[in-house]
Design a protein around this nucleic acid. Structure first.
Lengths: 175, 175
DNA sequence: CGCCGACTCGCCGTTTTCGGACATCAATGA
DNA sequence: TCATTGATGTCCGAAAACGGCGAGTCGGCG
């Protein structure tokens, strides 16, 4: 019904396991962790089109290399109005920083919807690019992540190391 | 998800009121009675494309004129496996004949699903072409029709008149 | 006795409704 | 300190309701 013309996908290795990218003609649509809670199989009618996803792939590689703190990609996530509000708000959290679910709820103008924010966060179709990993519990606990808590820890540690200039990676080892 | 590329539609007058036809690149998809129980508004993204529906339109005109007893069109109804089984079975009921819901249930191999057959019949997206009007109660009552019982009566009377050679239309008038 | 209508009950796929469970958190009371 | 509670949007499974039925039963009524 929603005019789906064609979907392209590609895969790429990363420090947190294989990533699968999906895009349509409007932009990047999904990123999954190969080992993740809600991974799904590639649909038969999808087309493997590495060239269409080359830019996304390159920027992700730069991100993992620590040489990129901001993405410049056309994004086209699919969700309800509420979910989209949450997801776009994610993009405004600065690299290396964190906020709580309650704070995110406040920022989208629905201060009581912190729990719903958690649920929406859990369905973020574009992890890493829309940095849902920068949202943590009000008490500092990590609480959850689609790609697994170790991955969330890895991403936060990576950003902390780069943003705070710890070139020796000491923080990365100290939990 | 189901690769919907584009939908075309057109309208045409008929003895039972205005008809709205909808098709995709695979074939005819829906026929609604303008005055019917479950008519819906034309979706904004549909394209008015009379030329794509010219064949269907012509064959329907011939049907109402009494010069066509069988349709030769590419059909593409959307439904569950059970519904499709019921709808395709409709096409095998000969012009001018009738069977009961129970009989139709038997023909698709589920003799006890007569009631479900009734429900599926009620959602037939291609009335007239898939002749759900030829299915009536075991006791001969008409029991129901998406386009209204008068329409069902009209169609049965039309077919009866043509098939049984009553060129004077006496049956049509006698209730 | 026959015929007919009103009623009951079982059967089936689909749709709708409903109740939890969630990547939360601050306030309350024991 | 810890368990409890209420507010929020979405998804998912289970359960119930709902039909374009039909066979059987039971009273009326001639």
């Amino acid at each position: 019904m929603s005019g789906t013309h064609a979907l392209w996908y590609d895969e790429m290795p990363s420090p947190v396991g294989m990533l699968r990218l999906v895009a349509d003609e409007m932009g990047l649509r999904e990123i999954w962790f190969e080992r993740g809670s809600h991974r799904k199989a590639a649909q038969p009618h999808w087309l493997r089109a590495p060239e269409s996803l080359a830019a996304a792939r390159r920027q992700l590689e730069e991100y993992f290399a620590g040489t990129r703190q901001q993405f410049d990609l056309a994004l086209h996530p699919q969700g309800t109005p509420f979910q989209l509000a949450v997801w776009w708000e994610l993009a405004r959290i600065p690299y290396g920083g964190t906020i709580s679910y309650g704070e995110l709820a406040r920022r989208i103008g629905q201060p009581l919807a912190m729990r719903a924010v958690g649920a929406a966060n859990g369905r973020n179709p574009l992890p890493i690019v829309l940095p849902c990993h920068r949202v943590i519990g009000a008490d500092g606990s990590l609480t959850g992540f689609g790609g697994g808590l170790p991955t969330k820890r890895y991403l936060l540690s990576l950003e902390d190391r780069i943003a705070h200039g710890d070139l020796f990676g000491a923080n990365a080892l100290a939990k």
